[in-house]
Design a protein around this nucleic acid. Structure first.
Lengths: 147, 147
DNA sequence: TTAATTGCAAATCGTTTGCTGAAAG
DNA sequence: CTTTCAGCAAACGATTTGCAATTAA
């Protein structure tokens, strides 16, 4: 049985003699409750609802811990802000992004995943992670534009 | 026959009543002479060799024109700086990046390209561009580490 | 002479960091 | 007591922008 996300984080903290402070606990809960992709700012706003005295730096620092512990993944779609999402106990997926409305659809494809491994191997690389972003126009925005 | 990169840029400027100033010409030449990936800063340093009075803002502004005209492509590998590379008359490719030494290998794969199109279509999206980054450890860095 | 363009410096903006006091073991 | 943390504000670093002076058509 897989460890729960909270266990993973606790173990991570314990290993490096760090504490689960109320602030960290609160930010992690806000993080776990979050769906989809979000920015540090968005998590900050959410965390502040639970405790208005939370500082933005603490959110940044905790997000770094979450990424480092494997609970979160971060990526950049070139908009000047880092995006975060769950990364533990979630099947890997890539993103299809509408450049008109910003909608992001998660996609998975076995064929691509396998080819990526093969390509890396052909070059003698050991693959640790990858990021695939497909940019286009979503059905809704296409409709609006065609008229 | 395909238009040359310089022609593309000239046409682009003409269409919007912009001029090919000495600074722009110089930056474009530096850009065209560049191989592989580079940052705005790197292009700035190179351009300054041809004309030390060039301003960094002009390089940023011209790079934007280059991207907009289709001559350049830009992407972000999450290091806080935008990377640029040629995007006209060059077959599309993706990147395999060594997270130890930063080496970047260009890769192309028909199978993946096709699947990407299919995936987008399945969701009703019209694909305009995509970005695939594979992160791992290159053969050289693997050797060093194994010992 | 009129609009486009430059270089400079100041402004932005997301993110990081130094510092001081508070809290945890 | 000793170390870890939080919050704040200042620092940062890449990129953008306002502006006055310069250049191109």
């Amino acid at each position: 049985m897989l460890k729960s996300a909270r266990e993973v984080f606790m173990d991570y903290l314990r290993e490096r003699d760090m504490n689960l402070t109320p602030q960290r606990a609160l930010i992690v809960e806000a993080f776990l409750a979050e769906e989809g992709h979000f920015t540090s700012e968005q998590l900050y706003i959410k965390a502040r609802k639970a405790d208005p005295s939370i500082g933005q730096a603490t959110v940044y620092r905790t997000l770094k811990l979450l990424v480092d512990s494997g609970l979160a993944e971060t990526f950049d779609i070139g908009e000047g802000v880092a995006l975060y999402e769950h990364g533990y106990g979630h099947a890997h997926h890539d993103h299809l992004i509408c450049t008109k409305c910003g909608r992001k659809v998660e996609i998975v494809d076995e064929v691509i995943e396998r080819r990526q491994e093969d390509l890396a191997e052909e070059q003698g690389f050991t693959l640790t992670r990858h990021r695939m972003l497909l940019f286009g126009t979503c059905p809704q925005c296409l409709e609006g534009k065609e008229s």
